[in-house]
Design a protein around this nucleic acid. Structure first.
Length: 543
RNA sequence: GGGCCGAUAGCUCAGCCCGGCAGAGCGUCUGGCUUUUAACCAGACGGCCAUGGGUUCAAAUCCCAUUCGGCCCGCCA
């Protein structure tokens, strides 16, 4: 069999080049290349699911750069039956809501039915499946991925899967034999087709006879096991066409490859030792079709815990993009797919710093090792359009700027701190400050040490006389001298010493006064950037 | 039980294909900038490369075994 693990074993600056090489070996010159991914819209599509899009996306982009015509297809496996109620759902605006906030009982009565046959619990889309497929589409848009999204249900209903389904059923014995090599429980009664009961709508499992020529099966709606519980069948006996049911996953996947002419498909490690080997075998032996170039990716964890739609440990792309610029998110996916990674919300600053360095390496603004420089030079253009004029404010400092909502004040503080050149254009400034809202959202979400605000009102303070007098002197100095940040910073030290106040205590007094915190940004430049009257009034402890 | 993938500095990760001085960033510490403050500069500390064997002049790298973590071996996807 073709090992889906081998791609990253060869040395490339960017893993997508290895995958692209393998795809080029497979395809005829000039033919359109199809790259696919797919997930079941069973619940909240989370950040970890984005592997299924992003990995294929980078391979597609590399192949396009090499002059190929590439289409990225994404199947929403929406004919799969609902097996278990997820603990959390999400509306189209990116809000995650608990199961209790929607009509859970209306969902519970639909266990066993295809996602596209279940009403949307939010009432905004045609079905449960369409709802979550829509969120996948939104996520792709947010990440700048051009996707041709195909509904599995549509592929069945339109007849697109009919030929391959008929072929599989006409060779049911062979299908059974192949699958039996991979699964123990395949017995003589196994039929690789699950009709949808015409009476209760459940995806059933008991087929009593096949007429491949006519394209129908006879079935009896029996109980099915799902999610550790039993979904009762209604006992109905009927006839279903090949458009009124679905193939079991292990056949459905190769059926998608054949029908959609798939050349490359990335998939999670759960498929690597299960459905990939059987799918490859089915494609070659049963369908006479060359399976796509495979690539396994490792799963991400979220702050150290497994992503889980059903358990509700999720973060959606839309949420992540409130915290990070899209290029940073895309950068995250340029890393080696083989390695399990933690997506740490707590330490997003680290990821952004890493991205900023990656970017500087590309522009030759920083010296790095041979390997990392080569990777940056190769991969960066696939992350974002290179713009040598961009200015990046360090993420944690951007979080500091989030203490105020005043854009002018933010820009002033950034200039005084040296993070914005004086001659930066308005557009450069605006783009640089775009990071502030993200970093601020991060500080608030994690409630870390950057989560502080400019104290609009005078905080409750009690200073000794020396400190009070020193603050008053400082106010006079600011009023009469109008110092710049550095000068003021020096004066703070001078003033503290003149009044016999410990320098550290005096700084703490300043942070208490303006931020209601024990510490904060460099005080001189910070105060110099604020409104002068506001500063002097506050230093004089006036309300 | 059988199979697959992973493990490198406190943290995040390169390096492994094709053996040749143990690396980067961040953090920490020290010093400097007239100055403890989420600024800057310089430097230092930090490693049984999961463990044990083997091959080799030489092993993080190749081979074998083991440990730990994840996954697969469902008429689930």
């Amino acid at each position: 069999m073709t090992s889906p693990h081998t791609l990253a074993d060869r040395q490339y600056d960017f893993w997508a080049d290895a995958a692209a090489d393998a795809v080029e070996e497979r395809v005829e010159a000039g033919e359109e290349i199809v790259i696919k991914g797919g997930i079941s819209p069973s619940g909240v599509p989370h950040f970890g699911n984005m592997n299924e899009l992003m990995r294929g996306h980078f391979v597609a982009e590399v192949l396009r750069e090499r002059g190929h015509d590439v289409r990225q297809v994404f199947t929403t496996d929406d004919r799969d039956p609902l097996r278990k109620l997820p603990r959390k759902l999400a509306d189209l605006d990116g809000n995650i809501v608990g199961l209790g906030e929607v009509d859970a009982s209306a969902l519970g009565t639909n266990l066993g039915r295809p996602y596209t046959d279940i009403p949307d619990p939010f009432g905004c889309c045609d079905s449960y499946g369409d709802h979550f497929s829509e969120i996948i589409r939104q996520s792709a848009d947010l990440l700048g991925i051009d996707l041709d999204i195909r509904s599995n249900t549509d592929l069945y209903e339109s007849g697109a899967f009919e030929d391959v389904t008929r072929h599989i059923l006409a060779h049911a014995d062979e299908a059974r034999e192949i699958l039996g090599e991979y699964q123990d429980k395949v017995d003589a009664s196994y039929v690789p087709f699950n009709p949808i009961c015409a009476e209760c709508g459940t995806v059933t499992e008991t087929v009593t006879s096949i007429d491949a020529v006519a394209g129908t099966v006879e079935y009896r709606c029996t109980d099915i096991e799902a999610g550790g519980q039993t979904i009762e069948g209604c006992g109905h006996e009927g006839t279903a066409t090949l458009r009124e049911g679905k193939l079991p996953w292990r056949f459905e996947w190769p059926a998608q490859w054949q029908t959609l002419d798939v050349d490359f498909e990335p998939f999670g490690k759960d498929h690597a030792e299960g459905s990939w080997p059987s799918g490859e075998h089915i494609a070659r032996s049963l369908l006479g079709n060359e399976p796509p170039v495979p690539m396994v990716y490792e799963w991400f964890t979220l702050d150290g815990e497994a992503f889980s739609s059903s358990a509700g440990n999720v973060v959606m792309v839309s949420e992540v993009l409130e915290l990070l610029e899209p290029e940073v998110v895309r950068y995250f996916f340029t890393k080696d797919p083989k390695r399990a990674r933690d997506f740490s919300i707590e330490r997003l600053d680290q990821l952004v710093d890493e991205f900023d360095r990656f970017e500087r390496l590309y522009f030759g603004e920083e010296d790095g090792g041979e390997t990392e420089t080569a990777r940056a030079e190769r991969a960066y253009p696939f992350v974002t359009d290179p713009d040598a004029a961009r200015i990046r404010i360090p993420y944690t400092f951007a979080a500091v700027l989030g203490m105020t909502d005043d854009d002018e004040l933010r820009a002033t503080m950034a200039r005084r701190s040296g993070h914005l050149p004086e001659d930066a254009s308005d557009e450069q400034v605006e783009r640089a400050l775009g990071r502030v809202e993200k970093a601020r959202a991060w500080a608030v979400r994690t409630d870390n040490e950057y989560n502080y605000r400019l104290a609009e009102e005078l905080p409750e303070v009690a200073f000794d006389d020396a400190t009070t007098n020193a603050l008053a002197d400082l106010a006079d100095y600011v009023e009469t001298e109008r110092p710049d940040g550095e000068t003021l910073h020096e004066e703070i030290f001078e003033t503290a010493r003149d009044h016999g106040v410990e320098v550290g205590d005096f700084f703490t007094a300043g942070y208490r006064l303006f931020l209601d915190e024990q510490q904060g940004p460099r005080l001189g430049p910070f105060l110099a950037a604020l409104d002068r009257t506001f500063v002097t009034e506050r230093l004089r402890l006036r309300e």
